[in-house]
Structures are given as structure tokens and as C-alpha cells.
Design a protein around this nucleic acid. Structure first.
Lengths: 215, 215, 215, 215
DNA sequence: CATGAATGAGAATTCATTCAT
DNA sequence: GATGAATGAATTCTCATTCAT
């Protein structure tokens, strides 16, 4: 066989697979999971659509893969922060920055996670609810630790409060994802994100009320 | 003959139409918009397949109708509270209670709104983004008014803060909708809702930090 | 019965019925039989569409009615000409004028006949083929009579020739119906029709060849 | 194992596509475009339902394809004759024979063209009206050239006369297609066609009138 | 590994027709 | 006669998934 070209045909295996996952993220972000066609994903990845079925059992498994492979890494980073020795405020700032940062670096990924994975029945499925639940748990743990250290009020239920923190953050992110929160063009984007992060944590920690600090 | 009770028959003309909308809410809540079949809705409503198309142009229009006819009423109630003469705290408690209450009275409606309408392309459509935006705006107005009255810190941007408030609330509601927030069986459900409402408003106003009050 | 108003409620019966037929002609001309909805016809007639089924068994029967009630009258007029004592040329001019005239007076009717009734399987249905056939037969009779009188060449088969005459005419009419034959704006419409009629008969009688007359 | 004869399998890639087109012609000829179901076409072609949509966007596109792919070839043959150096009579005989011959060789194709494509809105669509118009134009050109050469009377408008020629021919073809023109069983079919062709051209050139030649 | 032709279950939608009022 | 709500069969079209090459 004269097929001895020097083409770098190595790591072909996971190369294509990753391209499929990346393409799926783009397409899911653009069209949503249900509207996305497997052929769209293949076209975006530049491969034949039959190949998708070499790497994935079906369309749903792509979504699961996005979730498991990418979310898990993200989650571990969050849990690292949650279980670090810092103060509650430091931890919340860290988690908030991480989430907002993810949105800046890879908004499509966040969009898919926020709009597709979390929703639908998947949210309620054991495997994933546990995975999503880990985020809530991490935040709840931060709060509980804070209570133990006297940094967080003891009269609040951390298992409820964590929903407020994660949900508040998520909606801000959603607003950014959907371009509903308008970014003042007079300020650099990165500055705006800093401002948002500061606002978010400030509200969670010190609250909206004027008297809470002034008294 | 006990036939005298089966008699009323078609009374309000839009009797069937309402039954379709109600059925759609149930089915959408159960299966999600995409998975829901028109035939499911018809079966749930106890009417024939084609009648759905007598009243609605297509499946999507049912979703829009749910949104327009029911969300608008809800929104007006929220705006009434926002524009009432009460204190910021009273208003936030009012709005929070209203949202949590809606979830208690008609959880399917909230589920459809939270999981279906808000998502999909609809969230981004002018008409509806504006309608959804009205909720955010109403909360932002409450905060701005509070700033003017000195009840809310002046150093926070209400247009960002409103996302945190609405989002925090929404996620709590979602948690309740999806039964992820477990309700301690030792307490009555209604008591639990009160506790949740109090916690939510407390966090938004006074924050999580212990020192914010103690100092 | 106190219903003694002086409203001219007489001939109501066929009044509505005729309105349905007229409306159907318009709608069929506009959309074609298959695309035409019964509700379109009812709307055009200004009545409830259930009423259509009072007067007609189904949609097809409306088409048949148009055919039978209107075509028959037209056909009798043609047959009258065919069986009149005039010369062959006079008869052909008469028939041609009648067809072109019908198109001027009621183009929708002609359009429906040309495009809908004659086509489709109906052309082949016994009842109608006979009725359509009567037109061909009438023309064939004119030609046969002409042969007997020595006005028409005896070497032509009238049963084939009649197709050429009717078909040539019909296509001219179709061209007019579809506005494919453009009418020179410099001449009045009525003059144009006269010119067309003259051309048609002239061709049928004397042919296209220059030498046929010149010799 | 007798499997060696079932082997050929997919050869030309567009093998199936052509089978769909051929099947569609048969089904359209049998049932008409509107009555024809896509499933009928698939069954006739011996392929799966969905494959039709692999090759064609929708049912209408099949009709368009029949038109474009087959009509164009036919048209070019007609135009070749029209633009050849022969006499007017030779050209008309050539075109007539071509049309009658097409009907003998592939009556279904002619039937679909005559009954389906030409009708419906298609006749009025720019692209196709132009294509159909090319047939009329070709005949008009033959007549105009004949006038220039003194073979055709100069007092006739070729733009009207061409409708008569094409239309006369078409109706004869339609009569044959629909078996309304009965073929005398005493003569061979091919002879009959010759007779029809001769009659048609004879009428167009020399006309029906006895005196046109006798004088 | 790759390809994309082939399959067919599913779902939406249309609309002629019936029927209770 | 008149109305239009109600019915549901019929069809088109989509697209995930399989499979032969």
C-alpha cells in the first residue's frame, strides 16, 4: 500500500470525539437540545453524521457526556474552593468568580448547562440530580462552615439559603448569557464582570437593607 | 333517570377552550413542551384531536396563550405590590409570598412557566422578553424606590440586584417544584412555606453574614 | 305565528344556494378545486360553512353542479349554433365568438371549467365525458355537415379534426385566462377579441400555408 | 447459495432517485398529483418512505424535477427541429411527430405533463411559464420563419397562431392519453398515429375549407 | 474508522363532514 | 334553515438510528 503519507494521523480517536462534543455544545447552545439535529452536530464538527453513532449511543448520550465530562471538572474546582481553609467571604467570592469566569471563557458551555442540562426531566434524574446537587451541597457546606465559625448567621437554614445563592447567581449568568443584562459600553467587559461579582457577593453577605450596616 | 346532572353541556362557549388550556398546563408540566403530544392534551381535556386546532393555530400557540392569559394577571398583581405605598420589606415579602403562594395553589402552572415558557426561544422573543422583563423591572423599581427612601443601600445597582432577587426566588421555587427541596415531614406544609418566605426575604435584606447585624 | 314581517324572504332557498355556487366558482378559480376549502367557499358566500352541506352532499357535488347547471346551458347554445341552417364558416365563427365571449363576460367560470372540471379524473367520468363530449360532437357535426355541403374537405376525419378545433380554441382561451397572451395596450380589448376570433376561424378554415390561397 | 444474483445492489448512487422519479410519474399519471400519496410513490419505487425526503424536499419538488429534468430534454429536441433548415411543413410534421411519438413511447410522462404540471399554479410560475413558453415560442418562430420565406400567410399573428397549433395538438394528445379518441381496431396503432399526424398538419397548413384548395 | 444511504416510527396539521342546538 | 363546534381520518414531513460498503 502506497499510503505512507506523513499525515499526523495520530490521536485521531478522541480528536473526532472531542470535535463532536464541542460541536454539540455549539449547536445545543444555538438551537436547544430538542431542536438540534444530529446532522447539525455532524456538520458543525465537519464529519459524517453516521460517525456520531460510533462514539455515542444516541443524541442524549452526547448531552450526558457534556454534562459528565465537563461539569464534573467544574464541580471539583468548586468543591476545592468550598473545602479550602479560607473565610466564607473568600469562598463565596471564589465560587462566584469561577462561575462568572466560566461564562466569559466559554459562554456556550454555560448556556447549554443553564438552559438544557439543568432543565428538562434530567434535573430530576438520580445521576444528574446528584451531580447538580453537589453544587448546591458545596454552597450549603460553605454556609454551614461559616455558621460554625460564626461568620454566617445561625438562624438561617443553609439548605434553603444555598438555593438562593446558586439561583441568584444562575439568573445573573442567564441574563448575561441571553444578553438581557446589558453591558454599559462605556466600561470594559472585564471590569463589568468584576462589578457584577462584587455586587453579587455583597448582596449575599451584607444584604440589601441600608440599616443592616448603618446601625 | 339521573340524566339531569349530565345536562349543563356547553355553557360558556369557551368552556372547551379553557379545558384545553388547563389540560395543556398539566401535560406540559408532566412531560415538557416538546415531549407533550397534542393528542395527549386532547385526551387530558377529554376532547377530540382536531378541536385543539379549532381554538389554537398550533401547539406553540397554546404555550403562548398560557403565558399571555395567565402570566399577565400574575404580573399585574406583582406590579400592584411593587407600586403600593408600603415599605421595601413589606413589598418584598408580598412579592415573595405571592410567588411561593402561586406555587402552592397551582404548582403545575408555575412548573410550566419556570421550566417551559421561560426557556426555549420564547425567552428571547420581544413580546415575551418584555413581559418577563416586567417582573425584573418591578423588583428593580422596588429596590430603587427603597434607595430613594433610604431603606436600601445606595451602592448597589438595582438592575443587577433584581436578577439576584428574582433568580434566588425562582430557584427556590424550582427546588420546590421539582421536590428537590425536601420538606421536613415534622412540620405542616404551610408552616414550611412561611419559613421559606421569611428566610428568603431575610437573606435579601439583611444578608448571610453574621457580623452584618452584630456589629 | 307572529312572524309576519314584510321581509322579502321569498326565493330564499335558491338564493343562498346560488351564492354558494358563485362563491365556489370564484374560489375554485383562485385556488383550484383541491386547494379550495369548504370554509373558503362559505366565507366567500357570507354564510356558515355548515350550510353548504344543506345544499350539497359534499365539495365534489358543488363542482359537479357548476358543471351541470352552467355547462349545460352553454352547451345548448353551442348546439343550437351547430344545428342551425348557416354555413360552416358562420357556425364556426358563432361557436368561437361564444366561447371567447364567455371568457370576457365571466372569466372565472371559464377558468374553472378549463382548469378544473375538464382536468382531473372527471374528464374521464361517464356523465361528464358525455357532457364534454357533446362539445366535441357538436363541432364534429358542424364539420360533417360541412363535408356533406361541400364546404369542408372530405379527406379529413371530423372525429379527429374536432379535437384540433376545440383544443386550439381552448388553449387560446387558457392563454387569455392566464394572461399569458398579452393584449397590446394600443388596441381596445374588445377589438383584440375580434381579431383573435377572426384569426382562429381563418386558420381553421383556410390554414396557415401561403400557397393554399394564392394558387 | 443463490445469493449471487441479488448482488448488483446500489450501483449508480442516483439509482434510487431515478426510481423515485419514475414511480412518481406512474403514480401521478394514475392518481393525479393531489391524490397521489408520498407513500404510494415509495411503494411503487420499492423503497422506504423516508428515502423520498432524502432526495426531495417535498412532494412538489418531485413534480418540479419531472418537469425540469424531462421536459427540458424534450424541449431542446423541439427547438432543434424549429431551428433546422427545413421547410415549414417539414418542421411542423417533425414537431407533431415528436409530440405524438412521446405519447406512444411514454404515455405516462405525457399524461403527467399534460394533466398535472401544466395545470396548477405551476403554469403561472415564472421559471416554468418560461419553459412552457419556450414551446409556444418555438412554434411561433417556425411560423414567423415561414412567413419570411413566403410559406406562411403574412396576415396571421404568429403569437396567436402558435396557441392554436400547440393547443390543437395538445388536445389531440390528451384525447389519446385519456383514450377518448378511439382507435379503430381495424388498423394498426402505429398507422393510426401516422394518420393523426398527417391530419393535424394538413389542417394547420391547408385548413378545413374545401374551397381553399379547390379554387 | 468513515460515510451517507436507507429506514420507519412519530407527530403535527389539515379539513371534509357530522351533529347538536 | 342556519350555525359553528366537534370529530377524526388522512397525509405530509422530520429526524433519530441502523446498516451496507
Amino acid at each position: 500500500m502506497p499510503k505512507s503519507e506523513t499525515k499526523p494521523k495520530s490521536r485521531t480517536r478522541s480528536d473526532k470525539r472531542n470535535r463532536i462534543v464541542d460541536a454539540a455544545i455549539s449547536v445545543f447552545a444555538r438551537s436547544g437540545f430538542h431542536r438540534a439535529r444530529v446532522s447539525d452536530i455532524a456538520a458543525e464538527a465537519g464529519i459524517a453524521y453516521g460517525l456520531v453513532y460510533h462514539y455515542f449511543k444516541n443524541k442524549e448520550e452526547i448531552l450526558n457526556t457534556i454534562f459528565e465530562e465537563r461539569w464534573t471538572g467544574f464541580l471539583e474546582a468548586v468543591e476545592n474552593i468550598a473545602d479550602s481553609p479560607g473565610s466564607t467571604e473568600e469562598k463565596l467570592v471564589g465560587i462566584t468568580s469561577m462561575i462568572l469566569g466560566a461564562n466569559r471563557v466559554n459562554p456556550e458551555w454555560v448556556k447549554v448547562f443553564v438552559l438544557e442540562i439543568q432543565r428538562s426531566s434530567r434535573f430530576a434524574e438520580p445521576g444528574q440530580i446528584r451531580a447538580v446537587g453537589r453544587l448546591f451541597s458545596a454552597v450549603a457546606r460553605v454556609l454551614r462552615d461559616g455558621q460554625a465559625k460564626g461568620e454566617v448567621r445561625g438562624d438561617l437554614d443553609p439548605d434553603i439559603a444555598c438555593y438562593i445563592v446558586v439561583g441568584g447567581l444562575e439568573t445573573v449568568v442567564t441574563g448575561l448569557v441571553l444578553d438581557v443584562i446589558e453591558i454599559d459600553s462605556s466600561q470594559a467587559e472585564s471590569e463589568y464582570y468584576s462589578k457584577v461579582a462584587a455586587t453579587v457577593v455583597e448582596i449575599f453577605l451584607r444584604g440589601l437593607a441600608a440599616d443592616s450596616r448603618d446601625q
